[in-house]
Nucleic acid binder design. Sequence first.
DNA 1: GTCTATACGCAGATAGAC
DNA 2: GTCTATCTGCGTATAGAC
Lengths: 203, 203
Amino acid sequence: MKLKDSKTEEVILEAAKSVFMEFGLYGARMQQIADRAGINKALLHYYFRNKEKLFDRVFENALARYFQNMEVLLDESQPIIDRVHSYADRFIDFLSEYPQMAIFLIKEVSLNQALFEEKVNRHKKEKASLILVLNQGMQRGEIQPVDAMMFFVNLVSLCTYPFVARPIFKVVASKNGAQWDVNRNLALKESIHEFINNKIKPL
Amino acid sequence: MKLKDSKTEEVILEAAKSVFMEFGLYGARMQQIADRAGINKALLHYYFRNKEKLFDRVFENALARYFQNMEVLLDESQPIIDRVHSYADRFIDFLSEYPQMAIFLIKEVSLNQALFEEKVNRHKKEKASLILVLNQGMQRGEIQPVDAMMFFVNLVSLCTYPFVARPIFKVVASKNGAQWDVNRNLALKESIHEFINNKIKPL
DNA sequence: GTCTATACGCAGATAGAC
DNA sequence: GTCTATCTGCGTATAGAC
């Protein structure tokens, strides 16, 4: 029955999130986390015992947010194709707000796949899987038949990689007299909506 | 006039490449590079002075290979739309052979954008920019009008992210009774060709 | 050129005062 | 709970023998 969420603990978690997201597990420095939290290094260990455990907490939160996006898929009041459009929009909004999240996930997952798998399983209670919903939509004849897994991969790629590789795209853009900015999100969404319609919109 | 490429130097570079690609600049350990090269740690410093300089050499090679892909775009004997298809295919073949390359680039670029920009400039001699070629194609009426930068981002996303986020996709696939394997490359290519045709193929 | 041994610094973790 | 001071281990880098 612990009602007391220590203020300090929250501050630390917030600082840890920002540092871990920027530098990853191994790149992050406990000193920097302490600095951003405005406290001492030793206090980090007092609250979270060690770096891995602190990271775990941050990672857990990140994963929760990541999977939380999928819930829109379960809104039975909307036709499936609309849910897919919303899903893409939310995905991009999420990444706009936490641009480091994707690369943060990838970095650590690629270093420690087993850990990731274990953690994902803790979040799998939801049936809000795009692939599931797509298959459902195909059975009902609500959408065009597609390879659901491939569609999922394509869609997530279109949404995510612009954020993951933003530094690269910015360089390419400037070398070509083009723009690649946050304010291109709307155009990105439109482009993806077009993709979705081309692939699964009923004729 | 140095004709003599030291055998040891090559072996070290090969080992360094594999370790740096797997763990990144800061994650890589000189000891592990030495181990994979079958030599001693001190010898690394003898040949390359320090870790950063060794990394530089590897990074340089990676960038060269990365940009080398673009050359197919300049083959005037082919219609532009075919070049774009080839470009995508080559991109995927490249990433199949060096699956760590993309994430390797992203990791380090996101940590040190300035360095990346400087290095890219050293490779910019080529006019083989997809964006340039697209604009050319539009002027000639060879392809449908599109936002060239957005098309570039979409296309690169579709090609690259499946490799970058492979661990994640594998987990998702297995949780949904689907497959996500190297041997899905052909299907991935087909999917991307469809995207290209939808976007820019003349009616 | 290649090795062993070692110096050096950094970052995570702990001890212990307050 | 929060701090300062300190220990410890690891990883880069160097010295120096062969």
